[in-house]
Design a protein around this nucleic acid. Structure first.
Lengths: 210, 210
DNA sequence: GTCAATTATGAATAACATTCATTTATTGAC
DNA sequence: GTCAATAAATGAATGTTATTCATAATTGAC
């Protein structure tokens, strides 16, 4: 996976501030959530003027999408590092799913960013092209689905996980159902309940710390 | 299913305005979406002062939840009318799922209310108690799950459908996948892919018009 | 150094959600 | 019917904040 890097002065200058803004946005949003985070504080944190944020991001939502996309991207990198050693596509898929569940239900920064469906949907969309799809293609065989189906299933699963996470955060349901939730989500791929349970029960290596 | 009706002067007066506000909120939000809808316009539409809205709803989000809850409730009533004639719990579940998918992906009012995960989550939560759970309990047998599991699965499915709907609205995926999405969601219950496909393919009666 | 193009700035704007002191309506007791 | 008490409704005022835009600073090419 490579990031397209436009060369030249403009791009280099932009990339620097863009990075700082994404990090600042992540920090502020992690502390207060998307809604309570103000663009002014993000700007301050990144050491730029208020208006500068808007030369990099169309709107606050656009910034939030970039932040969430970055979270996903970082997680995807970590996952990839490990799953490269797997050769079983089912295990890859299951491990990816578990990692997403863990992040969404356990990590404060993630949880703070899960209250806007549109932001989530857009972030997933942006991730689909460069990265996620490829691994999903490999995992496609497990349910004998087409590629479109795999990305659809993955996308629906992510939104389902958001619902799971919100319910747990609000103590509407107990965190003990996470294990079971994973089984259900694996069932979505079309493998049977038995296999889903086995996949969910397998131990997986811990993610590398960034 | 019965709605608790508190008697007396207060409740009676309140119910009138509350109803008007929910309807007004639904109208305005259907036209502009939650974000662009203003509390002032909702108040005007309901023929009350700006402050009055806040004696019925804690916040704009709270109003949005009430509106979405009402949408769900109305749909649930329609579904119940038909499914009373079914005796096969699997069919009940499948029909309910298809109805929710149709609403979320096809109805403008619904689509406008699906951009805030927290609102959706809270609305689902409020619906769970009085109504949905009971039918889900009946449907529980199909996958040999416990009640908690059934409500968990249902909740995750609803959020998944939101993701589906958003992606279709943004033209990120084609509406032709809806059929397939339903199969995947049915798979979540633990029935096999075969049975899920059969259930999804069955013709169902149209919902009664309100 | 000069220049044109690009980027950064932050004060100003406009839009709303929300509050609250005040007014109005409703109630049951007498 | 009158009245005091209570509940509701009101809408102008407040405060916050996303966003804009005229101006200033910075850049690399020459």
């Amino acid at each position: 996976m490579t990031i397209t890097q436009t060369e030249g002065r403009v791009a280099r200058r932009q990339r620097k501030n863009r990075e700082a803004l994404i990090l600042a946005g992540r920090a502020v949003m992690a502390e207060k959530g998307i809604d309570a985070a103000t663009m002014l504080e993000v700007a301050k944190r990144a050491d730029v003027g208020a208006g500068t944020v808007y030369s990099y991001f169309k709107s606050k939502d656009d910034l939030a999408v970039a932040v969430l996309e970055r979270l996903m991207y970082d997680l995807a990198l970590k996952i990839e590092k490990i799953t490269n050693e797997f050769d079983d596509p089912e295990q890859v898929y299951a491990f990816g799913m578990r990692s997403v569940i863990n992040a969404a239900t356990g990590d404060t920064t993630w949880k703070q960013l899960l209250n806007r469906s549109e932001v989530i949907s857009e972030a997933i969309f942006r991730m689909m092209g460069p990265f996620a799809i490829r691994d999903l293609e490999n995992a496609t065989n497990m349910g004998r689905f087409q590629v479109d189906d795999a990305s659809l299933t993955w996308r629906m699963s992510c939104h389902a996980i958001v619902g799971l996470s919100l319910a747990i955060t609000r103590k509407e349901i107990s965190a003990s159902v996470i294990e079971d939730a994973m089984v259900r989500l694996l069932c979505m791929t079309g493998i049977g309940e038995q296999q889903a349970k086995e996949l969910a029960a397998r131990p997986y290596p811990p993610l590398p710390v960034s």
